[in-house]
């Protein structure tokens, strides 16, 4: 395969569009799930909250304004083909420029501070992004982007279970984390679960899981079944839309896994609000 040259501006334009689109247009998977949830709710309050979310998402799309004021920290998962060369710059600079343009030109909120503890000065363009890059064979770049709000990010958790905990231990940790979060992460939520790997790999898998359509199950039937079981259990908790009670506490549970160490069973739970925003593109 020949080396393929891609211009930095092509990457920038792609990233800019991903973040503007994901903040204005909710995915069909989420829209469908909210409509279905409204049919199933029996309380007026729960129905009313879901109606407000449906109306809200329509206003955002029609007027091209953000679904939520927290337009998130920019997270990108990149599959970078090993035959690709950015001919006139660096890949990461091109990505950051795309984030900068989306957040400044797209009327998105700039929510990133330069230093986590001491200065906490707003960087004023929502950079830097969090970029996870994997080098893959080929001559294309595939980017999955999400704007991650922190109301739900703050309710996420990781635990280093050990092998004897088994599937029961995994279930308990996921359910405990969701119950503790309660009304805070803007339910109905999407629950991303990362199981296996190492400490950081589990967290990354959990984030990746939140960026998968909730209409797509894990390809392994054992985990697909666990996704359904956890979703059922969460929806029995009566957290409900906006945390005000009801049958819809979560819209989906997505699990991603990776092989792990003989001594370990890491589990990470990354919670996403109902505005679970993500888009993909391939260059």
């Amino acid at each position: 395969m020949a080396i393929r040259e891609i211009k930095a501006e092509t990457v920038t334009a792609c990233v800019k569009k991903l973040f503007m689109d994901c903040n204005y247009y909710i995915g069909d998977d989420i829209s469908n799930a909210i409509l279905k949830a409204r049919e199933q709710e029996t309380s007026d309050l729960a129905k009313d909250v879901l109606t407000q979310l449906i109306d809200n998402n329509k206003i955002a799309a029609d007027e091209q304004i953000p679904i939520c004021q927290d337009t998130g920290m920019a997270v990108l998962f990149v599959e970078y083909g090993d035959k690709v060369v950015i001919s006139d710059g660096s890949f990461e600079d091109a990505v950051e420029e795309g984030v900068r343009q989306a957040y400044t030109e797209g009327y998105l909120r700039k929510s990133v501070v330069s230093d986590p503890v001491f200065d906490r000065k707003n960087t004023k363009d929502n950079t830097p992004a969090v970029i996870h890059t994997r080098i893959v064979p080929g001559d294309k770049i595939k980017i999955t982007a999400g704007g991650k709000g922190f109301g739900s990010e703050n309710m996420s958790a990781i635990k280093m279970l050990t092998p004897s905990a088994g599937v029961e231990g995994v279930k308990q940790f996921v359910l405990d984390t969701v119950a503790y979060a309660g009304p805070n992460p803007c339910p109905p939520i999407v629950v991303g679960v990362g199981i296996g790997g190492t400490f950081e790999k589990a967290a990354q898998l959990a984030k990746r899981a939140t960026l998968r359509s909730i209409e797509v199950s894990n390809s392994d039937e054992k985990y697909a079944s666990l996704e359904r079981e956890l979703l059922d259990e969460i929806n029995k908790m009566n957290i409900g839309p906006a945390g005000l009670g009801g049958k819809t506490s979560a819209l989906g549970v997505n699990i991603e896994t990776y092989p792990t160490h003989i001594a370990g069973l890491p589990v990470a739970v990354n919670i996403c609000c109902h505005a679970c925003r993500h888009k993909e593109c391939e260059i």
Binding site: Q52, L53, N56, K110, N122, C186, A242
Partner: peptide, 25 residues
């Protein structure tokens, strides 16, 4: 309602800065 931000904005008629402008949003 968390996440109903575009809808809620329809209920805001006017916004004026009072103080701490340097804090942006």
């Amino acid at each position: 309602i968390g996440g109903a931000a575009a809808l809620i904005a329809k209920s805001i008629i006017k916004s004026e800065l009072v103080c701490y402008e340097d804090l942006g949003t």
